[in-house]
Simulated assay, not measured.
Amino acid sequence: MRLLMLGGTEFVGRAVTEEALARGWEVTVFHRGRHEPPRGVTALRGDRGAADGLAALEQGEWDAVVDTWTNAPSAVRDAARLLADRVGRYVYVSSRSVYAFPPPAGLAEDGPLVEASPDDDEVDYAQAKRGGELAAIEAFGDRALLVRAGLIIGPWENIGRLPWWLRRIARGGPVLAPGPRDLDLQYIDARDLAVWALDAVERGLGGPYNLVSPRGHTTMGELLETCVRVTGSDAELRWTDPEPILAAGVQPWTELPIWLPRGELYDALYQGDVTKAVSAGLRCRPVAETVADTWAWLQELGGEPPQRPDRPSVGLAPETEAKLLRG
């Protein structure tokens, strides 16, 4: 198989590229040149935000393209139109944020969607991802595969959510652990996303798929306790009810990454229906493997994870945590 990876040097794109190479696929990575691509790929340079940024893609044929673009849908539109006659299948890594808010618990792929356009330039995240979906569908029709991911974690994460917890817990001492301990989480390891997406390409799948772990795959308690075990620290998890955390003005998801109290946003992110993806072969590795591999990757980097420049840093200030721990 011949794969064109738009990106391919960081996080999800990197995971897809590594998985394709492991399968013996021929991989072409189109990127801006800010990071070194994996060994064994053909590298093409270009900037999708520039007027002539797709010039390097004007020739060539591939069995599939994988696109993780997050910003202006018009960039997906331009790439998809350019490649429509020379690529077999367009895999667009989208998001479950495309559903009209608030999506109820258990929502499947046929739920109502946000209004968006493939011609949009400056829009919010949900409209950007939905516009990207529409751009892929416009050019590829039923050859477009829409991977509606939720929370993505694992090695190469450049958002900082799981890395923040690992680094905080590795420091040891009392750790504010947002409860309840049995809070169910849904996420996808970037490598499991890659495996499923490339399997789907081989099977010729198209259309939308919610791609996160089944409900009940893990809990906030199992995740943080695994972080303690993997790092070997003396951290003491102090489980705290949501009410005092929220009363202190602490922001879920950003100041306490991954955590959301039960409610509309929790239902939207952690209660999705993934029956369709599981039926199509989705398999999610144990949380212990994701945490251990992410910690090992951080150690290889010297403990300092990469950070996407277009995303804010996450994490709770030490003084805020100390105040909450004092009660």
Rank of each mutant, 00 (worst) to 15 (best):
Leu183Trp: 14
Leu198Pro: 04
Val65Phe: 05
Glu115Val: 14
Glu289His: 14
Pro73Ile: 04
Ser213Lys: 09
Gly154Thr: 07
Ile188Ala: 12
Gly172Trp: 03
Leu151Cys: 06
Ala149Pro: 04
Ala296Gln: 12
Arg181Gly: 14
Ala126His: 08
Arg283Ile: 11
Ala50Cys: 04
Gly160Tyr: 10
Glu236Trp: 05
Asp67Arg: 11
Ala197Arg: 07
Trp156Asn: 10
Ala144Arg: 01
Gly46Cys: 02
Val12Asn: 14
Asp310Leu: 00
Arg23Tyr: 01
Ala75Arg: 15
Val278Cys: 15
Ala56Tyr: 06
Trp62Tyr: 11
Leu151Pro: 05
Trp297Thr: 05
Arg48Asn: 02
Val228Thr: 06
Val250Asn: 01
Ala50Gln: 05
Ala79Gln: 12
Thr219Asn: 10
Pro214His: 05
Asp199Cys: 02
Trp165Gln: 12
Ala15Ser: 13
Leu237Val: 09
Arg285Leu: 11
Thr231Ala: 07
Ala288His: 15
Ala135His: 07
Leu54Ala: 06
Pro309Ser: 00
Trp259Pro: 07
Val91Lys: 03
Gly179Val: 15
Ala139Phe: 02
Gly204Gln: 11
Leu324Ala: 08
Leu298Pro: 03
Val29Asn: 00
Leu183Arg: 15
Tyr187Glu: 13
Asp184Leu: 15
Arg262His: 14
Gln251Ile: 01
Ala64Ile: 08
Tyr187Ile: 13
Met1Asp: 09
Glu122Pro: 15
Val195Trp: 01
Val29Asp: 01
Ala20Glu: 01
Trp295Gln: 09
Thr320Gln: 06
Trp69Thr: 15
Pro155Leu: 08
Met5Tyr: 07
Ala235Met: 06
Ala277Pro: 13
Ala136Cys: 05
Asp267Glu: 12
Leu146Cys: 02
Val114Gln: 11
Trp165Thr: 08
Leu198Glu: 04
Glu300Ile: 00
Gly272Met: 15
Arg45Lys: 03
Gly263Asn: 08
Thr275Trp: 09
Pro257Met: 04
Val16Glu: 06
Leu146Arg: 02
Thr226His: 08
Glu138Tyr: 04
Ala197Trp: 03
Val114Leu: 11
Pro261Met: 08
Arg238Ala: 11
Ala136Glu: 03
Val274Thr: 13
Ala80Ser: 11
His31Trp: 00
His217Met: 10
Val114Cys: 11
Gly13Trp: 08
Glu304Phe: 01
Thr218Trp: 13
Thr240Gly: 08
Gly154Arg: 09
Arg45Asn: 00
Gly33Asn: 00
Glu255Trp: 02
Arg311Gln: 00
Ala194Phe: 06
Leu183Pro: 13
Val27Phe: 00
Thr28Pro: 00
